[in-house]
Design a binder for these strands. Structure first.
Lengths: 233, 233
DNA sequence: ACAAAAGTGTTCAATTTACACCCATGG
DNA sequence: CCATGGGTGTAAATTGAACACTTTTGT
């Protein structure tokens, strides 16, 4: 047995769940109901259960917190593991953080055990989170920003069908920049299997209707779409 | 206490330690002396101790396995965490893997408790490792390959002073490609603070002496040096 | 007709690739 | 003087940024 003279500890799984609402990047946070950090905001999470895989635990928490069944279509990837001895005042807790990307979904009020879970603009909670969750959020944001450069992840932020303008607004919200709509359009339509036309189109309040697309099978972007690229129009 | 009705488990730290020897990429492996997987090769690692930080545990294992003190100059970064319930037949063990990059150092025979630790060409051990260490190695290799594109990590594979040809051979060994020496030379000398001339030079067996360089302060490469780039001469 | 958003064409600059050519040394 | 690896020059091809301009709708 490996446990004879070695440390036994609790393993938590914490989630950075991101979405774009009203053209701004939001993260799902919960208000803490117990000590420590009572009343403060924190990332949703929970403890690993007997016989449970790490990713399965993350999926379970994701479902519980968002109150949604469609979680299988979200993006979920391991972010990093945080194990500073003093990170939790209750005792030794090592936390495996996951990054989840969700489309713009209904506010998770009615959901299951969602203890005051709600979407908050990342700009408002940065620096106000319990434990070391500020650091975890920061790492999650950097990972998401990087993923948008090299993978087709941005389309996961959109629903089942979206316009190129919707997709561009995701890039702008996550990166905090503006992009040239004309060059952006060419870049994404020029990358094979990134987005596929549905045939339909959608009219905005005013202006020419935009073609609708859905996710294609591509996972990586070649060539990548880099930040520090062309500033906006 | 968070541990009341939750799973307690052992946390291991495993290491993917890479170096380049004789123009080939090598990984440090140990021959297992106990069950399970007795006699098989595995990645070096050990269990987390009371009050010990994850990265500190990785540094401790790195020193123990290589038998070297100069470990502080190595590169050490967290890779990923592996927690499948059945990954260790002895019981529930979650492992945090770290990636270490070492210069070409003396064989770690004499070192401390090094239980048959030795360098093995990655091509020879891939698929022959105990536990899920094949997967961990594979993830570590991909991370290292990617790091060479966007960071100055390659210089860590070299010693305190090296020629541009040495540095190029690192890229070729890690990526398994050949690169044009002339364009490569310009790329690295054109990236500010990547490498700094020492003023000395070193003569090869035959041919013009090459200028010697040392690591510069830069951490990231802009522009990056991409794989799938120009094939060799 | 006009405002607004979608999308195309085109130009100029920066970067990358390929390779001819020169440099410095040991045998 | 020749083989070998180090290093520079340079032209062609590719890519990327910038932006004028056309398209298509609602009011």
């Amino acid at each position: 047995m490996p446990s004879r003279d070695h440390l036994l500890l609790n393993l938590a799984v914490d989630l950075v769940i991101l979405t774009v609402r009203e053209d701004k990047l939001h993260v799902l946070v919960v208000e803490r109901g117990h000590e420590p950090y009572t009343g403060q905001l924190a990332l949703p999470g929970g403890f690993l259960r007997q016989g449970e895989d790490l990713k399965a635990a993350a999926e379970r928490e994701l479902e519980e917190e968002t109150g949604l069944k469609s979680v299988r279509h979200f993006h979920l990837e391991q972010l990093a593991t945080y194990g500073e001895p003093e990170r939790d005042p209750r005792g030794r807790v090592v936390s495996v953080a996951y990054l989840a990307i969700a489309p713009n979904l209904p506010v998770p009020t009615a959901g299951s055990d969602a203890r005051a879970a709600h979407w908050a603009p990342v700009a408002e909670v940065s620096g106000a989170l319990a434990f070391d969750h500020g650091r975890i959020l920061s790492d999650g944001l950097e990972r998401a920003r990087s993923r948008l450069e090299y993978t087709t992840l941005a389309a996961v932020f959109c629903g089942s069908s979206f316009t190129i303008g919707d997709l561009r607004k995701v890039y702008e919200a996550v990166w905090g920049t503006t992009l040239d709509p004309r060059n952006f359009s060419r870049k994404v339509t020029g990358t094979k299997d990134f987005i596929l036309p549905t045939g339909d189109s959608r009219a905005p309040d005013t202006g020419r209707p935009a073609a609708l697309y859905r996710r294609g099978p591509a996972q990586t972007l070649y060539p990548p779409i880099l930040r520090n690229g062309s500033s906006g129009s």
